[in-house]
Design a protein around this nucleic acid. Sequence first.
DNA 1: GATGAATGAGGATTCATTCAT
DNA 2: TATGAATGAATCCTCATTCAT
Lengths: 215, 215, 215, 215
Amino acid sequence: MPTQTFFNLPEQKRQAIIDIAVDEFAEHDYKSVSISRIVDRAGIAKGSFYQYFADKKDLHLYLLQVAGEAKLQMLSQLQPPPARSFFDTYRWMMSAAIQFEVAHPKLSRLGYRAMYGDLPHRDETYARMKQQGHEYMKSTFQQAIDRGELDPLVDPDMAAFVFTVISAEMGGYLFDRLGINPLQTPENRPTWNLEIQPIFDQLIYILEKGMGPKA
Amino acid sequence: MPTQTFFNLPEQKRQAIIDIAVDEFAEHDYKSVSISRIVDRAGIAKGSFYQYFADKKDLHLYLLQVAGEAKLQMLSQLQPPPARSFFDTYRWMMSAAIQFEVAHPKLSRLGYRAMYGDLPHRDETYARMKQQGHEYMKSTFQQAIDRGELDPLVDPDMAAFVFTVISAEMGGYLFDRLGINPLQTPENRPTWNLEIQPIFDQLIYILEKGMGPKA
Amino acid sequence: MPTQTFFNLPEQKRQAIIDIAVDEFAEHDYKSVSISRIVDRAGIAKGSFYQYFADKKDLHLYLLQVAGEAKLQMLSQLQPPPARSFFDTYRWMMSAAIQFEVAHPKLSRLGYRAMYGDLPHRDETYARMKQQGHEYMKSTFQQAIDRGELDPLVDPDMAAFVFTVISAEMGGYLFDRLGINPLQTPENRPTWNLEIQPIFDQLIYILEKGMGPKA
Amino acid sequence: MPTQTFFNLPEQKRQAIIDIAVDEFAEHDYKSVSISRIVDRAGIAKGSFYQYFADKKDLHLYLLQVAGEAKLQMLSQLQPPPARSFFDTYRWMMSAAIQFEVAHPKLSRLGYRAMYGDLPHRDETYARMKQQGHEYMKSTFQQAIDRGELDPLVDPDMAAFVFTVISAEMGGYLFDRLGINPLQTPENRPTWNLEIQPIFDQLIYILEKGMGPKA
DNA sequence: GATGAATGAGGATTCATTCAT
DNA sequence: TATGAATGAATCCTCATTCAT
């Protein structure tokens, strides 16, 4: 946890430090993140950094918490639809996950690295994140199957895998497909309904009905 | 490219160096790979290393090439089935990709890191690897659609994305699901037909028929 | 010298700062003493510290002065015996020195470090502490010899050395021998008469009569 | 243990590094010794240092070993006298210890710091040095008492303490008394017989016959 | 061609001290 | 007067790379 000193910082400065640090941890894996680079970019002294954070790991864990909170906040803002069928819920969940990716690509990448990258303190908190996420998805699918909203022949474990892995990479794919530079200003970002929704529908189509000929 | 000196090395020694280097680049991200560790494990002198390779990047690019060649070779060894339908071909392709993951987990991981990891020389060669793979898959899907083997409502670009990203992570998923430690000896590896094939079929089912109720 | 501000502090707070600082300088050598640790333990602000003391050295010199005054005060409280012989005086002096060690182990250790430890400002004041102490002892021995209370064949300079060095280390030896943890509460401390006196008598015996066989 | 690389160094260079390092560890306590200062003085690169020694502790332990070996070698060169009485042996032992102090004041100071100073890795090897040395001395005294060569009223534990502590500080005392700068060239060093022997005899006199009047 | 010692910039972290509030 | 955030030089240590043998 950051020190109180950090939280006493002017909002703007504190956020700037977070943003820069998030960017570094999004773009480089843990070992490659350089505290020197962060303080240089943030325009603060090396010593100041260590008055805000105990060490590199402290910063990293805090950023992961920030990412988690941002995700929760976004989910809580999105109204879940009246769930008529699983794919309504699925579409909503996926859309939420992907909207997060689009809205906070750095935070998303951060979490992704924490799950799959090289992490000296992996065990400490975040290996289980992976497992937990998977188990949650699996049970969600199982329930949908039990309610008859999904094909009972579908393996819930495999479905959870497919969902998880696609969500994790969806942001990058959307950026590629829409020709967006993730570093550009938010004003130029695509709007959900007009540009992303159709692409997303294509994904849902594949996942719902499959790629096979319908004949 | 390695120097001629490297290729003049006795086959056994050369292969040992490659194997060890592949292992290092599979287990650690670029920056964390230590030349010192490699030369130590390989039992060669630091100086010798730099007579074989211009630098760390040279070694890395060479290993990626080795990985590509190994993948090609495996594909060329596997007989494609008489393609009655796209999913026969798809199953074959995916099985080939996954078999490569299983047969050469290190090489596979290497390529994965090159695509998604933290690479100082990313642009130099490997952004296009990603793009190339994607374009190839996309045209494959397009052709299958044109031949009527796939649902024409499926977006080939999205299909290529789904395929690519699932392939990339399939190895890790299989290891998790089968409770395999990727570092263990090959003898204990699951055999394709008995253990992996059923899991793979579950994936194909989802991709072919979708998760939706079939009613 | 501390600032007037420091002396204006409430007695209790001032003493607490001194006690904590003494403890730090007793337990760590000069360079390892951390101002941060002191202010943390004392519950005062970093800035406050520098309003009380010019710098680390200022604090250290002040503590040495405090230690000196404490020693003097203890000596003045102990009634010197009617000096029938030198060894009565000697025993009294040594007992006083050792009682100080036992009563104020931290202050004692502080002085010891100042004499023998690694001190950036050694020359400034404390080389002469050593010399002064030695000269004082030497003249004391000389007078005792002149009064016929000591063997005139004894070299007073050497005697002063032996006395000084033994006194300096006696505290640690007593702790070892009595199995005492110097950090424990004073209540459990051995009482002078019952436990320390016999040990001390053994020392006096050696110094007075020597180790040689008495034939 | 230093690496083979270190031992492959030209004798002169290796000895220079040792000498400088010994000097640093003699003059400063462990934490205050600066690797940067050592490599600067030795004229070698920081990286080179770490090719010779694993880390600071490795260097320190090696220097302690060097000191121990130097002591042993000096003892083995000195012929023990035909031991007519304990004080012949004692004189020889003490003279050996003190000669070592005089010949290798830095090495001696090194060992002293290891015994009594702040040492992060104290337990690792050197706390027991203190105990061992004390126990060895104690049993030596006990045997002498048993043989009737020492006054049986002398407490062997206290005698061991007196001997140990005096030996440890004798070097510094001799330097002071003889007005020697320990940093000066060896040519100006006092010769044992002419200058040191008389001083040493004064010590022996005190320890053998005591300071008390012989009446 | 092989070797391995030498290099020095860069890594994270600590800490005495200053200064604006 | 009290505060505590800011500072930056110094700490130990790592590592890719070079070069003389």
